[in-house]
Design a protein around this nucleic acid. Structure first.
Length: 202
DNA sequence: CGGCCGATTATCT
DNA sequence: GATAATCGGCCGG
């Protein structure tokens, strides 16, 4: 299980290091796990794409707390999105988990989210993976460093840096430059994740 | 494939 | 009252 000191740095530094890590969820005593394959960084009040650009509100307050907590919020009237709080207390920063490659508990995940199960499009979106892992607002603020906890991060597979692509963040609407175009999104192909995972199993 | 668009409601102004 | 760190269905190529 990764410790607070791993998460306690600016989101644009943490986000690429989360690619390849294993996200673990214990749901009703069952262990579900998936390799993180896509992330985005949101850093500080100055980042005009970050929820914290308007200061602390009821929704975003978790981003101002200790690194290593889960910031889970509701959007578009129907979706829950999972972030991991980064940086130090009172510096609002978080990494959005946008896609994962499932490695344990696939049967349970397929019950949670049957659509396109076991295909490359199954868990390739931030609201898709929260459904598969059974995450919603009840887990907002949860500490991922809780001993024997039900949500945490483990070391996963090692990913060569040249397999991680970076590009601008998505879905930001009318966010002004330079924030709209900063390359604060990192991703690993589904097929490459699969190959690396299989090789790691040997 | 890719682009457009409606769904559906908590949160913020 | 407007917006939203998305998704899925439907369309055309």
């Amino acid at each position: 299980m990764l410790k607070p000191d791993f998460f306690g740095r600016p989101a644009p530094l943490l986000a690429p290091d989360l690619i390849g890590k294993k996200l673990v969820r214990i749901q009703n005593g069952q262990r579900l796990a998936a390799i993180i394959t896509e992330t985005e960084a949101y850093q500080g009040q100055e980042d005009l794409a970050c929820h914290a650009r308007v200061g602390k509100t009821n929704r975003n307050q978790v981003m101002f707390t200790e690194p290593g907590k889960a910031y889970i919020y509701f959007t578009y009237g129907m979706h829950w999105l999972l972030n991991i709080v980064a940086d130090q207390v009172d510096v609002p920063a978080a990494v959005l988990i946008r896609a994962v490659f499932p490695v344990e508990g696939l049967e349970v995940m397929a019950v949670n989210r049957p659509r396109l199960a076991n295909s490359s499009h199954w868990l390739n979106g931030p609201a898709k993976l929260t459904q598969a892992l059974g995450l919603d607002g009840k887990m907002n603020g949860y500490d991922l460093c809780t001993p024997e906890g039900e949500l945490f991060i483990e070391d996963g597979i090692s990913v060569p840096g040249n397999q991680v692509r970076s590009s601008p963040r998505v879905g930001l609407g009318t966010t002004p430059e330079p924030w709209l175009s900063l390359p604060w999104r990192w991703e690993l192909d589904w097929q490459q994740a699969k190959d690396l995972f299989l090789k790691d199993m040997e």
